[in-house]
């Protein structure tokens, strides 16, 4: 499972850097490298683009796993170059951005948008399979999540927009409820689809999410 990211348009990155002349760039060696949005090559390309836009890049770093606690030590080793910068441009998912922001002591700016937690279903292809809703329905949907895979998150079957097993909003996307129907049929459990599903508890998705399992009897909220 990876945190899937997409590069913000260069124009948006430069708008965010307006007023800053000296920039430190931090990438990530894990998910963003796999997504080709914040690895060694992308960080080098960003350096070049920023220099062409008239910025001084005081240093670059590809943190092994930007959301990890070791990030602090990596940044310490590059403290001089980072302190010479007015802003840190972070080429990682939002988890990395938030971790870096805690140590940077200066403004940070995300260069990427974080899209979803994805499974790599084939090389270079990532699909969202779970959106951490806190109220799992997979038992009744043959292990395919309609909350995630149906554009509308419907719980009682397909909408009228489905066409030839594809989704109303994009004919390249499978209709989740067609997939669910096919698999339930295959495993002989269409009765699960016939059963009424109550409205979802949207407050089960803790916001902000927080869990403490350090103490015995620790619980989530």
């Amino acid at each position: 499972m990876k945190s899937i990211t997409r590069a913000k348009p260069m124009e948006s990155v430069l708008n965010g850097l307006a007023g800053y002349d000296r920039v430190f760039i931090a990438g990530c060696g894990t998910c963003a490298t796999m997504c080709r949005t914040g690895g060694v090559n992308e960080v080098a390309a960003m350096r070049k683009a920023l220099e062409e836009a008239g910025k001084l890049v005081t240093g670059t770093l590809v943190i092994p796993t930007a959301c990890d606690t070791l990030t602090h030590e990596c940044m310490e080793q590059n403290r001089e170059a980072m302190e010479d910068a007015q802003v840190v441009l972070v080429m990682s998912c939002a988890f990395g951005v938030q971790t870096v922001a805690g140590y940077a002591g200066r403004p940070v700016q995300p260069a990427l948008d974080t899209l979803f937690f994805g499974l790599e279903t084939e090389p270079g292809h990532f699909a969202e399979v779970c959106m951490q809703c806190g109220d799992c329905v997979l038992a009744r949907t043959a292990g395919i999540c309609p909350v995630t895979a149906c554009h509308k998150g419907l719980l009682n079957g397909p909408c009228g927009g489905t066409n030839n097993g594809k989704c109303e909003i994009d004919s390249s996307i499978d209709c989740a409820w067609t997939l669910i129907y096919n698999r339930l049929k295959e495993i002989g459990r269409l009765d699960l689809m016939h059963a009424y599903c109550e409205p979802k508890n949207f407050q089960a998705m803790a916001k902000p999410g927080h869990i403490d399992i350090s103490a015995e009897g620790g619980e989530s909220r």
């Binding site: 554009h151 509308k152 998150g153 419907l154 719980l155 009682n156 079957g157 909408c159 009228g160 927009g161 109303e168 909003i169 009424y196 599903c197 109550e198 409205p199 979802k200 949207f202």
Partner: peptide, 27 residues
């Protein structure tokens, strides 16, 4: 009705709610 998806309309950046579905609305 469930309702058409938001992106087919004229406020493409709006949040689609779908708190209930059409069956749940009937209930």
């Amino acid at each position: 009705l469930t309702g058409d998806a938001v992106p087919v309309g004229d406020h493409k950046e709006a949040k689609g709610v779908f708190d209930l579905d059409s069956v749940q609305l009937l209930r």
